[in-house]
């Protein structure tokens, strides 16, 4: 058993030696694999980040209750008090018609134009923040419906539709990344199997001699399988480095952008799990590719 492992270890180091003996060719292959794997991995990481960023948006959903313009201040305050005691309401803010006009003047830039109006067209608003255990879309919807039944409430609006849409778009993008990853995985498979095919033909004489002195197919294919696995794994490491580098380049501008939006968002690199998966996928693809190449070409080389 130990001698079996030792032999495999020997083959591994022999293969490593062969790869480093032609550093430029190896580097080129590894770079092609790395770039190919970096594209879907990078998109995956960006999507993960977007999902992380939008995850708490759903929780931050609010329900705006636009009251009848005829509602008096005191009636609105009374309603606010009543709502504050209903289950599912965490906080409530009252924005009187005047406050609303003031805020609109500041934010819209229509200040001058609004001064020309002789009456305030805006309704008073109650902004309701639901309790955390009411953050599910169905619960929010039920809450909104119950609010709309009050006579003072003109329109009860849940600002959630666009969050829902965003999540569906993200899911769609995820599917797209998966599809792209599948296609590029096929490309990696072809690249590695072609390299291995060339390696097999370059060592045709050696293979013939080894077959003549009694080398089994398993013995002959072992270094090629290791070579494919190694190239795939090195390519995956290269892809990881490329993604990390890309994220480092994006981190600065994204941080600045987040600050402008008053957020503390930081780009996160690939977690340990996905990184390991990337290494495994790279190595696995390499192994599979050389397996295919070896299966197709090794049998054809017989001593003559």
């Amino acid at each position: 058993m130990i001698s079996y492992l030792l032999r495999h270890l020997q083959v591994l180091f022999y293969t490593l030696g062969q790869l480093t003996a032609a550093p430029l060719a190896t580097l080129m292959t590894v770079a092609v694999i790395g770039i190919t794997l970096a594209l879907p991995s990078g998109l995956y990481v960006l999507l993960e980040n977007m999902q992380r960023m939008t995850a708490h948006w759903e929780g931050g959903a609010q329900i705006s209750l636009f009251l009848q313009t005829t509602t008096s201040d005191s009636a609105a305050q009374k309603l606010a008090e009543k709502l504050r005691r209903t289950p599912g309401v965490a906080e409530i803010e009252y924005l009187s018609a005047d406050d609303a006009l003031l805020e609109f003047k500041q934010l819209s830039g229509f200040g001058e134009a609004l001064d020309a109006l002789d009456s305030n067209p805006l309704p008073p608003v109650l902004v309701v923040w639901p309790a955390p255990d009411y953050s599910k879309p169905q619960a929010l919807e039920a809450l909104r419906k119950s609010f709309s039944k009050f006579g003072e409430v003109d329109i009860a609006q849940l600002d959630l539709e666009w969050v829902k849409r965003l999540h569906i778009i993200l899911r769609l993008a995820q599917r797209g990344v998966l599809l792209l990853g599948g296609l590029l995985g096929m490309a990696v498979l072809l690249v590695i199997s072609n390299t291995i095919r060339l390696a097999i033909f370059n060592r045709k004489d050696e293979i013939q001699i080894i077959k003549l002195i009694g080398g089994t197919d398993a013995f002959i294919q072992r270094p090629f399988l290791y070579s494919g696995w190694l190239q795939g794994t090195l390519g995956a490491i290269m892809a990881w480095l490329l993604v990390t580098l890309g994220l480092a380049l994006l981190a600065g501008p994204i941080g600045d952008l987040a600050i402008l939006y008053g957020s503390q968002f930081n780009l996160a690199n690939m977690a340990l799990g996905p990184s390991m998966a990337l290494l495994g996928i790279g190595g696995g693809l390499g192994w599979l590719a050389s397996r295919i190449a070896v299966g197709r070409h090794l049998r054809a080389i017989e001593p003559t």
Binding site: D205, Q208, I209, I210, K211, L212, I213, G214, T216, F219
Partner: peptide, 28 residues
């Protein structure tokens, strides 16, 4: 392969591996 291990063959063109030492060739 197992049958070939029972037969030593010497070739006119030697069929040696030129990227390995004499020791490694004989050890093959």
């Amino acid at each position: 392969p197992y049958l070939r291990r029972e037969i030593g063959v010497v070739f006119q063109d030697h069929k040696l591996l030129y990227d390995r030492t004499v020791f490694d060739n004989v050890a093959l």
